[in-house]
Each structure stands twice: as structure tokens, then as C-alpha cells.
């Protein structure tokens, strides 16, 4: 009963935020929601299957570039590019996953990293199509979504949808199968579960969600840059997930909120922000090995 009360409070606050927060705080909140969706997507693979993907930036970037290119070259209205962004990212995840999910642990991590860097290099150099390191700029999502309040609600809706789907998956037979494969692949196979199919499905779904986050980033930033596909972007999702607590469903979202707010706060105050940010994150990870969600005790596993 008490958890329900807290849940309603959080939901009310999230819905009321545009009327409570000043403009700039709302801009940062949109960024936090985007990272929250991205990190939740990443964590679906990380927490349920135990595989650490270092290549999720590729899917974030694929979604962003699909949306950006359709807006720029085909003049599609912003919102209509969402399905394309999700599909492109999901398809790319299907391809990369096809080669990667067969491998395990460190090999999976290295392979996803290598694939993502490959995609980054293509986007970074293909001036004729992607604009190379000039990026794609001047992308205005139109009068409605150009307004930060509307964009906030769009980001909130997509995050809520993504979170609900991940939660549903977690509690579904599919989720149990994934965890069975994670904990004992040999035994899972013995009872008739095909790890390849399950892992590939989870990886592709996770990639598609990351694409939705990229789609949102384009509207917020009004541009797309190859940085979106660089390994540091993957690291942001990993840091957010670990910071918030990878074992809790809402851990990555919590971590994203802290990571984004902290980043904005520190960078505004000192040019030594990378040092300060690094030290704070280090301290948080050292003293909270189960992440911020670990503070809430066992109940936080939700």
C-alpha cells in the first residue's frame, strides 16, 4: 500500500513537472528522461541476460540519424519518424546481435563495442549521406514538439511506455527464460530453451528502445552528430545503470536522473567538471555497490 502511495506521488510529480519547473530545469529534465529510456533499454540486456553491451550507442545513434535524415531529406514531420527510428535501431540490433549474442561475457562486450565503433566510423566519414562530423543541423521538430513542455510529455510518454514494456517482460515467461539462460545456460538448453533466439530477441528489442531515445535526442538538440554513436555514449548508459542499480527495474532511470543533473550542475560551475564528476561517480560506485536503488533495500527490486 505504501509503495503505491509513493508511486502515485512520483507519477504526479512527473506529470506536473512542466508547471513546477523553470524552463532550463525542464530542458535538463528532458535530457534525463532521454537517458533514462536509453539506460533502461541497455539494462534490459544487462540485467536479464547478464551480457554487458558496449555498443548501445549504435542503436541510439541509428534512431537519431533515421529520424534526422527523414526530417532533413524527405521533410517528414518529426513524430512520423518515430516508427522509422525504432525500426532502424531494432534492425541494426538484430544484425549486430546475430553475430554477437552467440559469444559470451567479455567477447560479447568487445564485439558489440567493435560493431558500434564501425558504425560510428561510417557515419563519421560518409559526408555525402550523414554529413560526416558536421552532423545534421537545423532540425526543428515543428511548432508543437519544438516547445519544451510538449517535448517533455513526449519523452515522458515514451519512457513510461518503454519502462512498462521492460517491466512486463521482466515478469513474463520470456523474462524468466532469459534469467534461466543467464544463470545456467546448459540447463536452460536442456529444458528446451534456445539461448540464441531468446538473447537475439531481447537484444533487438533493447536496441529498438534505444532508438526511441535517439529519436527524442534529435528534437531536443535540433541536430544529430556522430558523437551519438561513439563509445562514450554507450558508457553513459552503463554508468547510469550501475549508478542507479542494475538489479532494480527503475535503477537505470534513477541513475540517469542523478547523472544528468549532476553533470549539468557541475559543468555550469567549474571548468574542472570532468574531475569533479569523476570523483563523485567513483565515490557513489565505491560506497553504494548496489547502486542508489540499493539504498531502498530489497523491496526496490520491484
Amino acid at each position: 500500500m505504501k509503495t503505491h502511495g509513493a508511486l502515485y506521488l512520483v507519477a504526479t510529480l512527473l506529470l506536473a513537472a512542466p508547471w513546477l519547473l523553470p524552463d532550463y530545469a525542464l530542458e535538463v529534465a528532458v535530457q534525463a528522461l532521454i537517458l533514462a529510456l536509453f539506460a533502461t533499454a541497455f539494462n534490459l540486456v544487462f540485467a536479464e541476460t547478464g551480457l554487458l553491451s558496449f555498443g548501445h550507442a549504435a542503436f541510439f545513434g541509428a534512431g537519431a540519424y533515421a529520424s534526422a535524415l527523414l526530417m532533413q531529406r524527405a521533410s517528414w514531420p518529426y513524430l512520423t519518424t518515430l516508427p522509422a527510428a525504432v525500426l532502424t535501431a531494432g534492425l541494426l540490433a538484430l544484425i549486430i546481435g546475430f553475430f554477437s549474442v552467440r559469444t559470451s561475457r567479455i567477447y560479447f562486450t568487445m564485439l558489440t563495442l567493435a560493431f558500434a565503433q564501425l558504425v560510428w566510423a561510417v557515419v563519421h566519414k560518409w559526408y555525402a549521406f550523414t554529413g560526416g562530423d558536421n552532423g545534421i543541423t537545423g532540425l526543428h521538430p515543428g511548432a508543437l514538439w519544438g516547445d519544451v513542455r510538449a517535448l517533455y510529455y513526449l519523452a515522458l510518454a515514451l519512457f513510461a511506455l518503454g519502462f512498462a514494456l521492460v517491466r512486463m517482460l521482466h515478469h513474463s515467461p520470456f523474462g524468466y527464460a532469459l534469467r534461466a539462460i543467464r544463470d545456467n545456460p546448459a540447463r536452460a538448453e536442456a529444458v528446451g530453451l534456445s539461448p540464441f533466439g531468446y538473447l537475439l530477441a531481447a537484444f533487438s528489442f533493447s536496441g529498438a528502445l534505444a532508438g526511441a531515445a535517439g529519436f527524442l535526442q534529435v528534437a531536443w538538440q535540433r541536430s544529430a552528430f556522430p558523437d551519438f554513436l561513439y563509445w562514450t555514449k554507450s558508457a553513459e548508459a552503463i554508468i547510469a545503470a550501475i549508478l542507479g542499480g542494475a538489479q532494480a527495474l527503475f535503477g537505470p532511470a534513477l541513475g540517469s536522473l542523478v547523472f544528468v543533473e549532476l553533470g549539468a550542475f557541475v559543468q555550469a560551475r567549474t571548468e574542472y567538471w570532468p574531475l569533479v564528476l569523476g570523483l563523485v561517480l567513483l565515490a557513489l560506485v565505491l560506497f553504494l555497490p548496489r547502486g542508489l536503488a540499493g539504498l531502498g533495500g530489497r523491496r526496490a527490486r520491484g
Partner: peptide
């Protein structure tokens, strides 16, 4: 980087 610069 560009995304941080836009935020700033």
C-alpha cells in the same frame, strides 16, 4: 561536445 554545448 555538441550535446553538452547545446545544453550549456
Amino acid at each position: 561536445k555538441p550535446d553538452q554545448a547545446v545544453r550549456e
